[in-house]
Design a protein around this nucleic acid. Structure first.
Length: 787
DNA sequence: GTTCTAGAAC
DNA sequence: GTTCTAGAAC
């Protein structure tokens, strides 16, 4: 849906004026990859005026020069036409001059026709009358030689959008996307459809890596080195808790993107979310830990610096992070930020590990700050050590490229390579090292309690940090501003009149989940409830098997109090946690009935013991999909499970494993995942053992898909660990998860509807996410043979 | 959980 | 016209 005639254009141009912008699309592909066909197909159905610049015919039908192509393209752009550059463009150097065409107010895209070499060769060999006269047997040698030199395009070359096509279907989709592009429409920026760079990494290798890496785990159990060897681009995505600000706002922006880009069925954002996301800087409190800076003074400076910065920038968020919810600096800053009326959507505090904001906190930040030392070296204590440990060698190497040392009050931006574990795992694209004043006599540059100088340096440090953050942001805005002439990432941009339906939250919601201690335990300890929280979310439950609609969804407000969105509701108390009483609808009782009276259901029971029953899911969502059903009365869902149920849970897990392994003996190509739905539709605790093909006619809607492919699905092994550690398992009682856009569970590409998703997953060969492999959450033939 | 179906999307 | 979603009913 291009924007020109649309009165609801989400990215309206400034002052109501339509700013015409050119578009240059470089085709990238070997001879025989279908570049000319692509151009012709688009031009045949196009809604805008295109010129195809083909080096093979540019000289009066004969092969011409690159210069001729450049001149022809420039002329076409001047005439307001859009241009296809139809030449191989396989190497960066060959593309560079064409990318520069974008300097004259044009977007530059790449469409990569990365089809199998064999196909290109056979087409080249077969073709007669090809414009490039590359026919016959010679073609094979030429194609092979060219492909050896192939350098896939990157955004950093200056492209605002890159579309990778690996199959005929991909090409069709891309043709459709460009055909539908109206005269002044635009497509969202980013990388689409990129395959994992290293598809050769197979399960066996992953297992091997895992084995090796056990020696290299940090204290929190984070695996460090395995990621060094993987280049798979995992972009933390919308399968996180949907209610952190970051996830939510990024979702919104993707929704925006989709309005301009209705046909981008392949939407695997590679390289972080910065193109479409809200730029978020997570930073620790500088100097207050190891450098022993006074907390009162530091908190004043933080709040002042944040306030100043936010006055200047709109589409950014700053998040102060500390490990403990008892953190004094967080409490001080929260209080002062509230007093100063700093908008809590733009600045807030977060309790968690800054190195695992996404994986452990489900909170996405694309930039994090590191309180470094003057040598910019790993080690020391606190945040610096943790960040270097988590980021692996790549951070050290990347840092060295930027600076050797740093003086107090300064900061330095370090872009993380896309292969960096931090980038892959956490979605962090940049680390900014910042050095604050030191009040610790044991550390270098000791200020001897000179707080006049100290405060000055700390202010400098924060302003340097924030300005550097903004400079990254500005540089990435280059792409964004290309997408529309009016600064598209404005958060205030309303969604009025849009038709996207994936995300229906309001902008001002926040929910902190994922840290047990800050929530469930506090409830036990009788923390005060504050119904007048500044921001809160209530998540009504409808459509599930129980009739009572609400469950707890609490959050911390600025005052650090717990607020409840469910005042006056009856709860029953089990041990420490309060559990909502639920009334289950008749249809949701089927499993409960089977669990209690298995003798009446011999037709479905496949295995029976005193504790559990194994049965096929009546409506399997994959080739193999069985349920391990607990028989314990009163245990209806994962949220009800407590420590005393651990033996049962472990037993159910091992029974699930046994069945998965049995299925694997029949079909070794299957891969299984074991887990629970956060909010099950059917009463009676049941473990899903489901093969990851999702090849089933019963998988019919978004809810089906997302219930197995977002954090709504809680892996059995994780649940067990969490119960062991915290007494309860995390359940994500957030219905919006089930309404999230449809993303392939392998390559993370987004798809407009279930049929399209299903046809994609039937062919997607990308490996399953590394975190699943890595944490042993998948059961496959490979995992069995190694383990 | 499924089925049915109106109406939106294509 | 067909396809697809989402809400209601069960």
């Amino acid at each position: 849906m291009e924007s020109d005639p649309n009165p609801h254009d989400p990215w309206p141009t400034g002052g109501g004026e339509e700013v015409k912008k050119g578009l240059v699309v470089l085709l990238v592909g070997a001879p025989g990859s279908g570049k000319s066909t692509f151009c012709n197909d688009v031009m045949a159905a196009a809604r805008r005026s295109w010129v195809r610049v083909c080096q093979d015919t540019i000289a009066n039908g004969k092969q011409g020069t690159k210069l001729q192509c450049l001149m022809s393209a420039a002329t076409a752009l001047k005439d307001g036409k859009s241009v296809f550059i139809d030449r191989c463009n396989l190497e960066q150097e060959q593309r560079a001059d064409f990318v520069k065409l974008g300097e004259a107010q044009a977007d530059v895209h790449a469409v990569v026709l990365d089809l199998p070499a064999r196909l290109c060769i056979s087409r080249s060999v077969k073709r007669t009358g090809h414009e490039g006269k590359l026919q016959g047997g010679k073609a094979a040698a030429v194609v092979n030689r060219m492909l050896q030199k192939k350098e896939l395009p990157k955004l950093s070359e200056g492209f605002s959008r890159i579309t990778f096509c690996h199959s005929e279907n991909d090409v069709k989709d891309a043709v459709k996307t460009y055909s539908n592009l109206g005269p002044s429409g635009n497509l969202s920026a980013g990388v689409f459809g990129q395959k994992n760079k290293d598809d050769k990494v197979q399960l066996g290798i992953m297992r091997f890596l895992k084995k090796v890496d056990k020696q290299d785990q940090d204290a929190s159990g984070n695996d460090i080195t395995s990621y060094r060897n993987l280049t798979q681009a995992i972009v933390p995505s919308q399968d996180s808790i949907g209610n952190t600000f970051s996830a939510e706002l990024e979702n919104k922006n993707e929704e925006h993107g989709s309005l301009n880009d209705e046909n981008s069925s392949e939407r695997s954002f590679v390289g972080g979310s910065s193109c479409d996301g809200i730029h978020t800087l997570a930073f620790p409190s500088i100097s207050t830990s190891d450098f022993q800076f006074d907390l009162e003074k530091a908190s004043d400076i933080i709040v002042d610096s944040v306030s100043d910065f936010l006055k200047k920038f709109d589409s950014v968020r700053l998040v102060l992070v500390d490990l403990s919810d008892k953190s004094k600096i967080l409490a001080l800053v929260r209080k002062k930020a509230a007093e100063k009326n700093i908008e809590s959507s733009k600045f807030f505090t977060f309790v968690g590990d800054i190195t695992q904001l996404y994986t452990k906190g489900n909170f996405r930040c694309n930039v994090i700050a590191n309180a470094t030392n003057w040598r910019l070296k790993p080690g020391g204590g606190g945040v610096n050590a943790a960040i270097y440990r988590a980021a692996g060698d790549s951070l050290e190497i990347a840092t060295k490229e930027q600076a050797e040392t740093l003086s107090p009050g300064n900061s330095v931006v370090v872009p993380l390579p896309s292969s960096s574990p931090f980038h892959l795992r956490e979605g962090v694209t940049h680390v900014i090292h910042v050095l604050g004043p030191n009040m610790n006599p044991q550390r270098p540059n000791y200020l001897k309690n000179d707080y006049v100088e100290g405060c000055k340096i700390l202010r400098d440090a924060y302003s340097s940090l924030f300005e550097n953050f903004a400079s990254i942001f500005n540089c990435q805005m280059r792409y964004e501003s290309k997408r529309s002439s009016s600064g598209i990432s404005n958060l205030q941009n309303p969604l009025k009149g849009t038709t996207g339906t994936c995300f229906s939250h309001s902008d001002q919601k926040i929910k902190r989940e994922g840290w047990y201690d800050s929530e469930r335990n506090k409830k036990c300890k009788g923390f005060p409830f504050n119904a007048a929280a500044k921001e809160k979310i209530s998540i009504p439950h409808g459509g599930h098997g129980y009739a009572h609609p609400e469950t707890h969804s609490d959050l911390l407000n600025w005052d650090g109090n717990l607020s409840s969105s469910n005042p006056g509701r009856e709860v029953k108390e089990t041990n420490c946690a309060k559990v909502t009483e639920r009334t289950w609808n008749a249809w949701a009782q089927a499993l409960h009935e089977i669990a209690l009276n298995p003798e009446k259901h011999k037709d479905v029971v496949m295995e029976l013991s005193d504790d559990f029953i194994v049965l096929n899911d009546l409506y399997p969502k994959a080739i193999k999909h069985v349920l391990v059903l607990s028989r314990l009365h009163g245990l209806d869902c994962l949220a009800d499970v407590r420590k005393e149920h651990l033996p049962l849970l472990k037993r159910m897990h091992s029974v699930g494993l046994k069945w998965a392994e049995m299925f694997l003996r029949e079909d070794s190509s299957l891969i299984f995942r074991l887990g629970y739905h956060s909010v099950p539709s059917m009463r009676q605790l049941h473990l899903h053992v489901i093969s990851q093909d999702f090849d089933s006619a019963h998988l019919k809607n978004k809810k089906h898909w997302n219930s197995f492919n977002t954090s709504f699905f809680r892996d059995s092994a994780d649940a067990i660990k969490e119960i062991e550690k915290h007494g309860v398992a995390k359940v994500i009682e957030d219905e919006s998860l089930l309404k999230m856009e449809l993303r392939c569970h392998r390559c993370r590409s987004a798809h407009p509807n279930i049929p399209r998703l299903k046809s994609h997953i039937a062919n997607c060969k990308a490996p399953l996410p590394t975190h699943l492999l890595h944490d042993g959450l998948l059961v496959s033939a490979a995992s069995k043979s190694v383990g």
